[in-house]
């Protein structure tokens, strides 16, 4: 963990309510699936946002405007600086032996899977991808995953893009021997009994500190109480109690 001052290089709306912010000056990402915690003027607590991409010191964040803090982020302009805690969370474990993993994202939860896909490819592992949304206008990162040469299935609840239904409806279309997922809790709960392999899940919880000291974001696991921010946000399917 480091406290860094990062400069906003760009900040743009990708689709309704979802923004992409690029920040330069970041030298502290160890693994995909980690997050950063951003201090905002006038807000007491920081805002935890997952790492979407990191290349040549430029950190890319995809964030959804859900409250006053993220709304404030959306108003920030290139050239402004942010106080950011970097390198937080355990991140995805890429040391697992698998030949054909599937990456499953729901909503804004697709964000951390992009850096994960790049890192898997760098290891010579070619994953397939399932991206789930409510409707076609919310679809993000489809082109980016396809540009990596990955088979990418999109599901929408209303059927306006790709397969109609949920990410679980796309699972039978693919062969996989491991999974990595990030998305809302109802999706993870539906996914857990539907998957046919072992895998890792990235959880979300309202956080206090983001650094493991306040016990604000604790979840239950088979190994006892764990902090989503410090022991997670990534847990294995075997250990997590959904």
């Amino acid at each position: 963990m480091k406290k860094q001052t990062l400069k906003i290089e760009s900040n743009r709306m990708v689709v309704d309510k979802v923004w992409e912010m690029k920040l330069s000056g970041c030298d502290d990402v160890q693994k995909p699936g980690q997050f950063v915690n951003i201090a905002l003027e006038g807000k007491f607590l920081r805002r935890p946002i997952s790492v979407n991409d990191w290349k040549d010191g430029v950190l890319t964040l995809l964030y959804k405007v859900v409250g006053r803090g993220t709304a404030q982020m959306a108003e920030m302009k290139a050239g402004e600086c942010l106080d950011v805690l970097t390198g937080l969370g355990n991140g995805f474990d890429l040391s697992v032996n698998c030949a054909k993993p599937v990456l499953i994202g729901g909503g804004i939860g697709v964000a951390p899977l992009y850096l994960l896909a790049k890192e898997l490819l760098a290891k010579g592992v070619k994953p397939s991808v399932i991206l789930g949304f409510n409707t076609a206008s919310e679809v993000i990162l489809k082109d980016e995953f396809e540009a990596l040469g990955l088979q990418t299935l999109v599901t929408t609840v209303d059927g306006s893009c790709g397969i109609k239904g949920f990410v679980t409806n796309a699972l039978p279309e693919l062969e996989y021997d491991y999974f990595y997922t990030c998305g809302p809790m109802p999706m993870l709960r539906a996914l857990a009994p539907a998957v046919t392999s072992k895998g890792q899940l990235s959880l979300e919880e309202r956080m206090g500190c983001g650094t493991g000291i306040c016990m604000g974001c604790t979840c239950k696991t088979l190994l006892g109480a764990k902090r989503v921010c410090k022991d997670g946000p990534v847990f294995t399917l075997d250990e997590i109690a959904l």
Partner: peptide, 23 residues
Amino acid sequence: RFGNPTPRIAECEAGMINSVGLQ
């Protein structure tokens, strides 16, 4: 002690509320 259910944290103007519950 596991402590209280989540969410345990709320933000306020110039402060916060916690209900960790002695985990």
